[in-house]
Design a protein around this nucleic acid. Structure first.
Lengths: 215, 215, 215, 215
DNA sequence: AATGAATGAGGTTTCATTCAT
DNA sequence: GATGAATGAAACCTCATTCAT
């Protein structure tokens, strides 16, 4: 008489793994690395802990997986190809817009790459930083393209960091004011970083070019 | 049952308590709420856990204490009175400078109020947010003062958030490039938010007024 | 980080849980709620603490479990159906006999429901009291049946309490004089409460009816 | 410059000690040995812990002190001299009355000697039992005096235990029905143990002799 | 006589992780 | 592929107790 467990779905790996990853992202985003427990993640994904271990090895590896996954997706959304006929300004606008759309649609993924996670310390601080650096890197690239020759990398990098930081803060604010649209948020960011307060306070606003970018 | 202790310093509370608070700030800043352990904090302060509990009650209370303490100090540094004859621009510059000086001199305190901590969730998310809001509030005040009449609060608030977010990101970057001066960092922030990229890319830089504020 | 365990029995829950409950009853009965430690209970049951928590949740829940379990068993033993042709006296005798048999056979369970446990205070005082009240309630029912009409509930209740209290005290005494039989103890109780000292001192003893109650 | 503590009352030992003892009795009665903490007792008595240790040595010693103290007082109240012209019945009535008066007036002291405390286990189980035995002993003495010659000690002792147990249960019931008078409670006990249910159910009540003993 | 400072030990609880089935 | 049973380690917190002043 073979021991009979309760019904075992036998769901294939290709289905189970994403389920777990999604749940992991959700929980890590919500509670941070230390606050998240493997039990919660497993339960949330509808499996038992050993399954999670079988698929991801350890909590650390799972977390790294989440970071990489989220970073890849964010990059895919953010890394919009530069159009030949486009000004830097226009490209930047389209990227910022894409960024906020991603934030709105995939908040968990965004949160994992966001600065918050870096506070965790430990072995992933570096990995999160690395993921975040890729985002910053894109901005750096754009700035380098547009900057006058001779501008030092040393000055461009922190500028890009500040721009991303402003975006993250806006993202946080957005979480608590969800009635705003991604466009409105992107416009806020673009206005601040392009026009600067000097201009804004004089009443000079930045407005998107006539032909709107489609969804 | 009888316990025999080794010689104990017997430092008065007025001295010990700040020691503990300092260590707590250090550890919380470094590892976050969940990552920090009371044992580590106690050991770092040169005492045993019961002492920490005797003075601060619980981990939560200690954390709240840290937040409030840090927020108060940051505000004290940041809340520079507006000079009558000063332009908004100048006041803002002095504040930003004060902000980065504080970041440089009291990194732990700054980190605890910084967005990172908000990710903890639980009963302090609110408290941290509240502390952070006070900082943002100051910026909002300044912006309101300078904005053209009719500007909606709704637009000013996220702007202030973005400005603070940019400062936080710069602070993070600074941590890994400690050879920079507070002045240089403040200048970077001021340039971005005041001139905007539009100006910067055209080669228009913001420079502080002639008479520098002394240390 | 990797932990290596030694060979573990892997006993199914249906077996382990009762083992734990038994041990918990034993320890709680012996040392009281405060005096009992989860570590002791776990060790006594041949497992580690986390198992106890996995099955019972918390010390409080475990204690409540013990109380309920013990109360249910005591009631099952004590709540003997009244025979139609029987006098109240006879029913009472059979119940008292059943009571002392239970005390003899399941001392731990009895002790947990016994007054001792009520002294614990906290959230279970009430639960223990409640369990005990069920026992008293049975006696009250019997007394009401037998009392002359018009007897006030107010007078019956304390009477029942006193009868149970006498039984508990006899149980305690029995613990230290284990050579006595359950029958002898029941006879003592029956004699005191049925005949009263007045009768006893005059040499009037109560004796059980001819046909002994079977096991 | 001598170190100056905050005002130190310098209360003489003769005053402080009873204060502490009272508070200890209160707390032990309320929470039991394990549930009581030295800090609570000290705070409740308005002194610091080292004072309690200076006066009583240790928690165990303090508890023993409480037991002895309470037992002595209970005995003093209960050990009423037998009047020459009095029947056993009358003496017993006066003692029971004295017992319940004591319970009403000094509940904490009573509770410490009551069976509850015996559950503590450990080194005082014996001491509490011993104190309680003195109470039972008095009853035994009375019973021996009144019993027909040849009655075995072996039968008298449990009888006395049961009588005391009934009294304790009535005391517990009284705690939750404080509107009852000591006389009413004593009458209940006397009726049960003297008349027995047999008599009571036939409507035969015991009533105190004409000349009531005054307070 | 009295206290503030301090601690070792132990209690409850949670968590990442593994093994046997 | 999947799980129930199990555990070592460590976290938070409390308590009885002592020492220096």
């Amino acid at each position: 008489m073979a021991t009979r467990h309760t019904a075992r779905p036998k769901v294939p790996r290709a289905v189970r793994e994403p389920q777990m990853l999604d749940e992991a992202l959700r929980v890590f985003a919500e509670r941070g690395y230390h606050g998240a427990s493997m039990a919660d993640i497993a339960a949330g994904a509808g499996v038992t802990k050993p399954m999670v271990y079988a698929y991801f090895g350890s909590k650390d590896e799972l977390y790294l997986h989440c970071i990489d996954h989220a970073a890849a997706r964010l990059m895919a959304a953010f890394d919009i190809a530069r159009d030949e006929n486009e000004t830097v300004e226009e490209t930047m606008w389209r990227r910022i817009l894409a960024y906020f759309r991603f934030v709105g649609d995939h908040r968990d993924e965004w949160l994992v790459v966001r600065g918050q996670a870096a506070a965790t310390g430990g072995p992933f601080s570096e990995r999160v930083a690395q993921a975040r650096r890729r985002v910053v890197g894109l901005v750096v690239g754009q700035l380098e393209e547009a900057a006058r020759p001779g501008t030092r990398r040393r000055d461009i990098e922190p500028l890009a960091e500040a721009i991303v930081g402003a975006g993250e803060a806006l993202g946080d604010w957005w979480v608590e004011h969800p009635e705003e649209s991604a466009e409105a948020m992107a416009l806020r960011e673009m206005n601040l970083i392009w026009m600067g307060l000097g201009g804004l306070l004089r009443g000079e606003y930045w407005t998107p070019p006539a032909v709107a970018s489609s969804a």
